[in-house]
Amino acid sequence: MRHGEAENSFSNDAQRSLTTQGFIESQKAGVWLNDTVNHIDYALVSPFKRARQTYEMVQSITTVAHTEFSEDIIPSGSVELVHDYIQVLAQERNLKSLIVVSHMPLVSYLVDSFCGQLRSILFTTASVARLDYDIEANKAVFGELYLPEK
Rank of each mutant, 00 (worst) to 15 (best):
S60W: 12
I86N: 01
S97E: 15
N138V: 08
F23Q: 12
Y55S: 08
A51T: 03
N34S: 10
S102K: 15
E56T: 08
R130A: 06
L131P: 02
K28N: 13
V31P: 00
V100K: 14
V141N: 10
V128E: 03
V31R: 14
N34V: 10
P47D: 02
F48D: 01
D112L: 01
L18I: 02
E25R: 00
P75D: 11
G22R: 13
F23M: 05
R52N: 10
L145K: 03
T20R: 02
Q59T: 06
T62P: 03
S97L: 10
M57H: 15
S102M: 12
E144W: 03
M104N: 15
R50W: 06
R93A: 08
E149R: 05
T67P: 10
A90F: 14
Y133I: 07
D134R: 09
R16Y: 03
V79C: 09
I74A: 00
A29F: 06
P47N: 07
Y55D: 13
E149K: 05
H39W: 01
V128Y: 09
D72N: 14
S26F: 00
A126K: 01
T36A: 06
G77T: 07
S46T: 01
S60Y: 10
E56A: 10
N94M: 11
A137C: 04
R93M: 11
F48G: 05
V58H: 05
D84T: 09
I135M: 00
V101K: 07
V82A: 10
Q91D: 13
H83L: 05
K150H: 07
D72Q: 14
N8T: 14
G116I: 04
V107S: 01
F10K: 02
I24H: 04
D35I: 06
E7G: 05
N8S: 12
V37T: 15
S78Q: 06
L95H: 15
R130E: 07
S113W: 02
E5Q: 10
N38R: 10
N94G: 07
E71K: 12
